[in-house]
């Protein structure tokens, strides 16, 4: 029977090692299937986070041969002839084996002011497909945090204190472009959110499993909105002459 050779990182914050496992191949097998095989037949304590195995929940993020991806969506037949090296996400503190501590992402999420509207009680919203489409793209996010992991600001410059990361930018974009939202989050973006730390090198967009255009549709439009507010004297002048729809400041 054909076999795949998996080299899986085993260890915790005190260090670790690579362990080699031979796993019999079945048609259409994905990396997560192989990890489950290892658990059932070799090492029951191999730690991995997973839920749906259908690329819906975004739990099984890892780095396969140096590329951050969802294990449930990474087919083993892609790697015929080479070993498959499975490592935990680099950007987040390691807990054990393939499991990392992603709680920082949730802490950041708490700092984003929620959806806020001023519609009268008891009346359904009247909004059209053209109004919701942009934000719907951002609502596809499954919070796998692969974008946060690959973002070099967070990954290599350890910039968690300076930049909220691509996932948060997508979240903020979904709120800012919500047709009924009345808050203005550009101040947050410029200060604590640290949008200027993003140098739009697009790695987040390149590997988003939901194919959200993180850079082109979320971050760049947000940068433009920040520029509208803070770096465009002409617009400021126009705004002061003809105040359009007022948005509430929030930081």
């Amino acid at each position: 029977m054909e076999e795949a050779i998996l080299r899986v990182f085993r260890g915790d914050s005190n260090g670790g090692e690579e362990r080699i496992y031979r796993v019999p191949l079945k048609p259409g097998m994905v990396v997560l299937d192989a990890i489950h095989y290892i658990q059932a037949h070799y090492d029951a304590d191999l730690a991995v986070r997973w839920n749906c195995k259908a690329a819906r929940c975004g739990s099984c993020s890892a780095e396969v041969n140096g590329r951050p991806r969802l294990m449930c969506k990474t087919r083993l037949d892609e790697f015929r002839g080479t070993d498959v090296r499975v490592y935990p996400l680099k950007t987040f503190p390691l807990i054990k084996d393939l499991v990392t501590d992603v709680s920082w992402n949730y802490q950041v999420a708490r700092q984003i002011p929620p959806f806020t509207h001023k519609e009268p009680e008891g009346k359904p919203f009247i909004v059209h497909q053209v109004d919701v489409e942009r934000a719907q793209e951002f609502h596809k996010c499954i919070e796998c945090f692969l974008c946060q992991n690959v973002c070099h600001v967070l990954r290599d410059h350890e910039g968690q204190s300076a930049y909220f990361g691509p996932r948060s930018m997508v979240k903020i974009a979904s709120l800012e472009m919500h047709p009924k939202d009345v808050l203005d989050r550009t101040g947050l973006l410029r200060e604590k959110g640290g949008i200027a730390y993003c140098n739009i090198t697009k790695c987040c967009e390149d590997l988003c499993p939901e194919e959200i255009h993180i850079t082109d549709n979320a971050i760049i439009p947000l940068k433009e909105r920040v520029a509208d507010k803070y770096y465009d004297p002409l617009r400021a002048l126009l705004r002061s002459l003809a105040p359009s729809r007022r948005r509430e400041e929030s930081t």
Partner: peptide, 10 residues
């Protein structure tokens, strides 16, 4: 079960 109690799927 073998191993530690830390994140032990078994």
């Amino acid at each position: 079960i073998t191993g530690s109690r830390m994140y032990n799927p078994g």
